[in-house]
Design a protein around this nucleic acid. Sequence first.
DNA 1: GTCTATAAACGGATAGAC
DNA 2: GTCTATCCGTTTATAGAC
Lengths: 222, 222
Amino acid sequence: MVRPDSQLPDTKTRILDAAERLFMENGYAATSVRMITGAAGVPVALVNYHYGSKQGLMEAVYARALGNRGGSRVGYLDRLEAVAGGKPIAVDVLVDAFLSSALRLTRKDNISGEVFKQLIGRAFYEPGPGTEAFFPLEYREAVDRYRQAFMRALPHLTQDDVVWRMYFFVGIVAYAMAGKDVMRMTENYSLADAGDPEAVMARLRPFVVAGFQAPAGMPRGT
Amino acid sequence: MVRPDSQLPDTKTRILDAAERLFMENGYAATSVRMITGAAGVPVALVNYHYGSKQGLMEAVYARALGNRGGSRVGYLDRLEAVAGGKPIAVDVLVDAFLSSALRLTRKDNISGEVFKQLIGRAFYEPGPGTEAFFPLEYREAVDRYRQAFMRALPHLTQDDVVWRMYFFVGIVAYAMAGKDVMRMTENYSLADAGDPEAVMARLRPFVVAGFQAPAGMPRGT
DNA sequence: GTCTATAAACGGATAGAC
DNA sequence: GTCTATCCGTTTATAGAC
């Protein structure tokens, strides 16, 4: 277990690293165990030895990527509300907080921020193991807390309005994280800052904030 | 080829119907040819006979779903611009037009609107055959035309701003169409109108319009 | 056009030596 | 913990009868 003088990570970690990248690039079903072990330079059998099955490996990938973020997800919001002292928090602050706590990455592990984000984004679209298990449990509380905060900040909106707009917000973020950009927008128009998460957030913020602050949507020809 | 008195479609169409549904539900890699032929009630060999390969079948699914929409995609915008006579078209009208021409379905074929939408949405997130080939070619002109129209309507924005906001717009639509709703938002909050495309569009419109009209995003702490 | 039978390769998982 | 060899089911695709 202890190998302080080795250059490469141990086989268990190498498998996880390769799986993370390949699952992210191709998706779960289109990635074979042999592709993973081939990329990691280890024999196939080690996947089952270390992780039990392909599905177990996928779940380990998500477990490492999410790490111990469960607690810290609402921690930031807690602090904001403590400072606000009962008064509503401004929408732009909430949008930033939601983006940061959901996406911002300050890990000690060796996973890169880019990979993490695409991995999370993929969970929003691809059916398969690893995602169903923990996502609702981990995120449900955070979503509800933000919903309440947004409703306090936007008293002109109904709960349905707020939930829908959070849904759209999540959609934008997921697409920015995991989307294929099939219209080649960032390519055809050579958006210089496409690869920089901070820059994308800067573009995102005013769009989403204005969306939240928009008048309520008329349910039907009103 | 001609079977006017038969109750069921011919085998070629039945295969395409089943493939469309299963590819949509499970994704390309997770759907086997045998699942498709099993659902269609035909022997496996007919897939290769009619479509050459599994990939050919996938491409046929997309080809039928997109149909002859190529020409009509910018047709609506053409008419709007003719009516406007050189003056900018209002943002909300452009948003509606983009939604309608990209998503609204008035097909004569037997494909359902729901299936079509999820199929297109899936193209935005899943790597695999069928999508790369035609999407840029079919949509590039439309995207560029709308970009120009949005820029005329929003003179305070740079081209990068407009393209980014169109990108966010597409992201919302794709997520609303194909997303897994992994946070169970529409479920936990029992959004009554989640299944109704028109209702979702009504919720979407004010959010996106306000987002487009927002002040320009500051590239970095300005 | 339709079907059965089969080919040839690949999938995940395991047994057992080291 | 690591690795080779293998099992066995499933995969796509095809050959050839009807």
